[in-house]
Amino acid sequence: MTKQNEQITIAPVPQEELAIFKEELQEAFMKGLQDSFQEAEDPTEMGPIPSDEDFENSLTAKDSVVRQIVLNGERIGGIVLKINPDTQRNEVDFLYTKANAHGKGLGTKAWEAIEAAFPKTKVWELHTPYFEKRNIHFYVNKCGFKIVEFYHRGNPGPSIEGEEPESDADYEFFRFEKVMTKESSEA
């Protein structure tokens, strides 16, 4: 667990640090893939995850908010969100913590800081691949999300224009939601 004096905050990412932020995010996502498929051939041959294009699209999307997760002045992770000011149905595009922050309760504290930074949120939504057991555990058991849909070939999720999935695994994602109650949004 974290020490009492350790404080998690979220802060804007300076423009000149966006390239490093993207590298950290891709490294964290690749580590999750490697941990899930240890017997697979070198997953780095697939290219970065998320792709540079997906990352750029997320950064430039309408209502995109990019923040770093900071512990005592040092970035330990980051988030890319879509904040809809009209509906307050907000989406987590990407959330990562560096490997040295895993298993210490920092991700949970980071999520609490995100909720505190966006107190008007009515519903949080996110997607994660079916094989990311650590993510599924984190979102369901630590952050209070519910799995509300499973996307697969028979129930494909929202498609990205011009993209054709290469395999069945590309279809297999969970959609999570966290409905914020009046009590939790006032806490």
Rank of each mutant, 00 (worst) to 15 (best):
P158M: 11
K120V: 05
Y96I: 01
T181D: 03
E172M: 07
E186P: 01
E56N: 10
Q88I: 03
K120P: 00
F176P: 03
E91V: 03
E24F: 05
Q88K: 13
D52G: 07
Q88H: 14
I160C: 01
E177F: 01
P119H: 11
S58G: 11
I20K: 13
E125G: 10
F173M: 05
Y139G: 02
Q4T: 13
E132W: 08
L81W: 07
E172P: 03
Y171M: 07
L33T: 14
H127Y: 12
N155I: 00
V123F: 02
P119G: 08
I160D: 04
I20N: 11
N155K: 05
E24C: 12
A19G: 04
R75M: 14
C143M: 05
E115G: 07
G103S: 10
E53T: 13
K22I: 06
E115D: 11
K120Q: 15
N5Q: 13
K146Y: 02
V80S: 03
H102N: 11
E161G: 08
W124M: 09
G47E: 12
A61N: 12
T181K: 09
E17I: 00
Y139H: 01
D93F: 13
S51N: 07
R89F: 11
N135R: 09
A28L: 01
D93H: 13
R75L: 05
V13Q: 02
G47D: 14
G78E: 04
R134H: 09
L71N: 03
G78R: 01
T121Q: 02
E91N: 08
H152Y: 09
A40H: 14
G162M: 07
G157Y: 01
K31Q: 14
I147V: 15
T60R: 12
N90Y: 05
G73Q: 09
E6H: 13
A187I: 14
N155W: 00
P50D: 08
D35T: 09
Q34V: 14
A11E: 15
F131P: 04
